[in-house]
């Protein structure tokens, strides 16, 4: 107790000394120096006729209006109420902390508490454990078994970057070209996102074909996995359809004429040719209608369909296991 009192006196003495020192230091010495060195002030005192021009007109300070200049009657009161509520919460917490310390449940990391909280509500431990504990055969760790998974990862990247591009893209002949120019030149990281979308799309085609060749060569398509092979072929066709519809969207010369050629090939099919042509182009020529329906196919129809096939593909892999090669 004695030592505590001594400490308190020492603190008080130190504070007093500091106050005295602070009050006794040379007042405003720097302030006068600054005023003397101010070029504007010097200029004013030297020749009042050549006063500096008035500052340029500035924008209204919106921030000031939002935060600082409110003088309504109830704002100070509201501020005090907020402080009071925080204070009450703090006081309650302190009281609870000190009074209930010994009776509460033993300490547990927050992450484990969150796990328990989720488990109590959704009972996920058992099914999730079942999924995660599935053994992986050693042959499936060869490098060429990753091609399908990387294709899916690229699909996810394409989805994300595609959404980013769709924020700025306009599916009209006038808007498309200008909006891609805007993405390339003005949008922050726009050209990076477009490059990732472009190269991931090309890479996905390559990887999907490589994955198909792997499955074909290792004979993984054989019974009982015929339907999984078929869903995979549909996924390949859908990937190509993504490429076909996406290629027109920049609406430049290459895109326009490549799509014209591609739809011409579809239009040359015997029997269904004209129907296919008119369905794809929305008329006999490649026009604004073609652009909007390619856009709709690219961002609405094909993603929905491909996700259905992907789910089927993955569920069948899970159910049937990975085929054992020779």
């Amino acid at each position: 107790m004695k030592s505590f009192r001594r400490l308190a006196y020492a603190l008080l003495a130190f504070t007093l000394v500091m106050v005295v020192v602070f009050a006794a230091r040379a007042p405003r010495a720097e302030a006068t120096a600054v005023v003397a060195a101010d070029p504007v002030a010097l200029l004013k005192s030297a020749s009042p006729a050549e006063a500096p021009p008035p500052p340029p007109k500035q924008d209204t300070c919106q921030h000031c209006h939002l935060a600082g200049e409110i003088t309504a009657l109830f704002y100070p009161f509201g501020r005090w109420m907020v402080f009071a509520v925080f204070g009450a919460v703090f006081a309650y917490g302190g009281w609870r902390l000190t009074s209930n310390w010994t009776t509460r449940a033993p300490w547990k990391p927050l992450i484990l508490r969150a796990v328990d909280w989720t488990e109590e509500r959704f009972h996920l431990k058992e099914p999730l454990g079942k999924v995660l504990s599935k053994p992986v055969p050693m042959f499936a760790t060869a490098w060429y078994y990753c091609l399908g998974g990387i294709s899916f990862a690229l699909f996810a990247i394409l989805g994300i970057t595609g959404i980013m591009l769709a924020f700025y893209y306009q599916p009209t002949p006038e808007g498309a070209y200008a909006s891609i120019q805007y993405i390339e030149n003005q949008v922050l990281f726009g050209s990076a996102i477009r490059a990732i979308h472009h190269w991931s799309a090309n890479g996905m085609v390559v990887l999907v074909v490589a994955h198909m060749l792997r499955v074909f060569i290792t004979g993984a398509f054989k019974a009982p996995r015929e339907l999984n092979w078929m869903s995979g072929v549909f996924l390949l066709v859908l990937t190509l359809a993504f490429g076909l519809t996406g290629y027109l969207l920049p609406w430049d010369q290459t895109a326009f004429w490549a799509s014209t050629v591609a739809t011409e090939i579809a239009g040359a099919e015997p029997g269904i040719g004209n129907l296919a042509l008119v369905f794809l182009r929305g008329g006999w020529e490649v026009t604004a209608v073609t652009l909007s329906r390619f856009f709709a196919l690219h961002v609405l129809v094909l993603p929905a369909v491909i996700v259905l096939f992907l789910v089927a593909h993955f569920l069948m892999i899970r159910r049937q296991g990975i085929a054992r090669p020779l």
């Binding site: 070209y177 990281f189 050209s191 490059a195 920049p250 290459t254």
Partner: peptide, 29 residues
């Protein structure tokens, strides 16, 4: 790819012109 794409963007050709057929019309690769 993103970093490289910032320096060498994909770019655009001339705007589409239905009246003007280029010499070699090619489909996507």
């Amino acid at each position: 790819v993103g970093v490289l794409g910032s320096f060498w963007p994909i770019g655009l050709e001339e705007p589409a012109d239905p009246m003007n057929t280029p010499l070699h019309v090619k489909a996507h690769w």
